[in-house]
Amino acid sequence: MLHIEDLSYETGGRTLVDAVTLHAAPGETVGLVGPNGSGKTTLLRCVYGTLKPSAGQVRVDGTVLDGAKERARRIATVPQDGQSAFELTVREVVAMGRSPHKKFWEPDSAADRLLVDEALARVGVTDLAERPFPGLSGGERQRALVARALVQQPRLLVLDEPTNHLDIRYQLEILTLVRELGTTNLLALHDLNLAAYFCDRIHVLRTGAVVASGTPAEVLTPDLLAEVYGVRAEVAVHPATGAPTVTYLPGPRTPHATTAPASRPSAEQKTSAM
């Protein structure tokens, strides 16, 4: 469904994404994990089209998507700079998600408004619909923007740290929701335990390259965590969820820690949330 082939992104002589190949089957939820600066955001931007890869290609349903509008009909995302000086209401912001399916002069139809109502209800912000969007809390905004992605009716949902700034309850709700949509999902996640629980497969990025791929149980091992993150950790299968669970152990750093890419300049402008 999603085929990322040999994708590289270079800027200013630095390679931020290095020949990444990554596939996702229809309906699959694929996680990207890795330390800050490992290239997760850059890779996702190449997929949803705000960056143009230096090499390689991205195919969705077998086609290379051409142009912003065609891409937006297949791929939805929650971008990072949604702030505006002007006060649109939450409903107006969510309704923007219908735009890729519309001619620019076309108003929203009754069917579009129904989709918006459903999406607002699904992420639990119906009560906020007529409120000004800039007045929402970070978490409320995040959910409204997920609602916008829903009304886009995408085949592929690409989310960069969708749980940022959310209370734990909403972290679980958002990821549960994402899994229930039936879309193919590509998620960059900070929290390895959430990734282990919600993703079918995980790819680990370090300095722009995929260093491990597989099911959470295959990938999330103490050795890999030591090598990539430079931390000591234990991994156990949680009795209730059946997913691997990572417990970080404080204490002396492993010898591998010096290889951790902490000194690498961050390519990911982690602006504070949507």
């Binding site: 705000t50 971008p79 990072q80 886009q152």
Partner: peptide, 12 residues
Amino acid sequence: LAGEEGATVLGL
């Protein structure tokens, strides 16, 4: 109004 990136990912 959704910003440069927001507008792009919505197809503009």
